[in-house]
Design a binder for these strands. Structure first.
Length: 431
RNA sequence: GCGCCCUUCGUCUAUCGGUUAGGACGACAGCCUUUCACGUUGUAAAGACGGGUUCGAUUCCCGUAGGGCGCGCCA
């Protein structure tokens, strides 16, 4: 049963009131989290990870938390945080409570690091970054695995060189293996000899990722961790930390990555697009959600379904392990479908919401402030939306409505207009 | 180099040992339409390779090849 859990940093996790219904048979509330690092925009893979976390939480009557992993002070920016929140909001994904700043919890992380140190599960390491770098280079040139050699693992602290601030390393088991029981990947076994003693607290006293994640997920009561497979090795390291702390493991689910059309990793490091770019290309959030849902997850032959249906169907057991390539053609087709099936008035709203994000959208946005113009566009909508695959296409094909400023009061339209526009024009003039 | 993971039409995927290997996007060819679009009908298109296990493998096991991810005082 869920118990309130309070972190020393002061935020209390209230147990969620158990909702009735057949899905509420879980003994503890489902808490997922989306934990992006604010070093850039929200890329598409992150968007899907958020979608899965969101859907999973909703599906089980739980909630999704948002944690900003901003412990890297050098690279974290406020602009990136805004971009991420903006991207999630546009995608229609909401989260419970305020976003948690991981950096804001550094004190608590240090505390755990100290505890590990006191328990003999961690030790001070006086190697300098330069020494480490040399060690790595040597290992690489000798074609040996690149790992920390544990130089300070058994060394007496009295041998510590003067003037060197130590980092704290986790004393990772050297024999045996670490097993990850993953809902998507299955049972993954990693030999402990391949996992070196990772730094959990930097020499400047700041915690590192793997420690922070474990402490935060634990303190925040996260029950299910759904993230990209690129974190699989981290999962092993984190498992060791959970064990050392005697904490209960959350359920893990590592989903496959989304690759670019060329098969290479699609991430912000490789110039992939942020979700804001998809908005600017005129895609509808609901189409985006539907498209993303079908990347790595499936429900039989079902292709097009509303988000509510996706939430009802979503489960980790239907999530595949192989990576998918991003296919614009399919996205575009799906988007066209959604445009055609969206009510005129609501599509007009989507268009108005989109216009500010389109570089050519200003004039039309201005023109649409006029009630009569909006009405005219609304009338033309049935014909317009039929042949537009994106909001950009919709806006462009609607352009004729705004072109001639003193709008001709009487048809017929000029003969050189394409038939589609002529008929739409006629429709817009219909009384 | 070491570890982990992946491999069904071009792409996303279904298949939970026995199917004419299904669907969707895309492609191609018709139909519909005074254009386009929509819609619609049809066609081409896949189990990486080699071994096992089994009466029977796309499905289970091993190997090979190819691909991906990870190996930071980044997250």
């Amino acid at each position: 049963m869920a118990r309130p859990c309070c972190s020393p940093r002061g935020y209390a996790i209230r147990p969620r009131r158990q909702s009735r219904g057949k899905l509420a048979v879980m003994s503890s509330p489902v808490v997922t989290r989306f934990a992006p690092s604010p070093t850039g925009y929200l890329h598409i893979g992150g968007g899907r990870t958020a979608l899965f976390n969101w859907a999973f939480a909703k599906r089980h009557g739980g909630r999704m938390l948002l944690r900003i992993e901003d412990t890297d002070r050098e690279r974290s920016t406020a602009a990136a945080i805004d971009a991420i929140l903006d991207g999630l909001t546009w995608l229609g994904l909401d989260w419970a409570g305020e976003p948690v700043s991981q950096y804001g919890r550094a004190e608590r992380h240090r505390e755990v690091a100290e505890q590990l140190l006191a328990q003999g599960r961690a030790y001070r390491c006086y190697c300098t970054p330069a020494e480490l770098e040399a060690m790595r280079a040597k290992a690489e040139s000798e074609k040996r695995p690149i790992r920390y050699n544990g130089a300070w693992r058994g060394r007496d602290p009295s041998e510590a060189p003067a003037g060197v601030k130590p980092a704290i390393r986790f004393k990772s088991p050297q024999e045996g293996e670490t097993v990850i029981d993953d809902q998507v990947q299955g049972t993954v076994v990693i030999p402990n000899k391949d996992l070196d003693d990772l730094i959990i607290l930097r020499s400047d006293g700041n915690p590192t990722y793997n420690l922070s994640v474990v402490v935060d997920d634990h303190d925040m009561g996260v029950s299910h961790i759904i993230r990209g497979v690129d974190h699989l090795t981290n999962a092993a390291r984190q498992t060791q930390i959970y064990k050392a702390m005697g904490w209960r493991m959350p359920v893990m689910a590592h989903i496959p990555l989304i690759h670019g059309p060329d098969g290479a990793k699609l991430s912000k490091r490789h110039g992939a697009l942020g979700v804001d770019a998809y908005r600017a290309m005129g895609y509808l959030p609901e189409a985006m959600r539907n498209y993303l849902a079908r990347l790595g997850w499936s429900h039989g032959d079902d292709e097009i379904f509303p988000t509510a249906q996706f939430v009802e169907w979503f489960g980790l057991e239907n999530t595949g392990k192989s990576p998918a390539r991003f296919d614009f053609a399919k996205l575009e087709n799906l988007n066209g479908h959604y445009m055609r099936h969206t009510a005129d008035a609501s599509l007009l709203q989507s268009l108005v919401a989109f216009l500010p994000h389109w570089e050519e959208g200003k004039p039309m946005l201005k023109a649409l402030e006029d009630e009569a113009t909006r009405t005219r566009l609304l009338r033309a909508m049935p014909g317009l939306k039929e042949r537009a695959k994106t909001l950009i296409e919709l806006a462009k094909s609607a352009g004729f409505l705004f072109a001639a400023r003193p709008f001709p009061s009487t048809p017929p339209p000029p003969k050189f207009w394409p038939m589609a526009e002529r008929s739409c024009f006629l429709a817009s003039c219909k009384f």
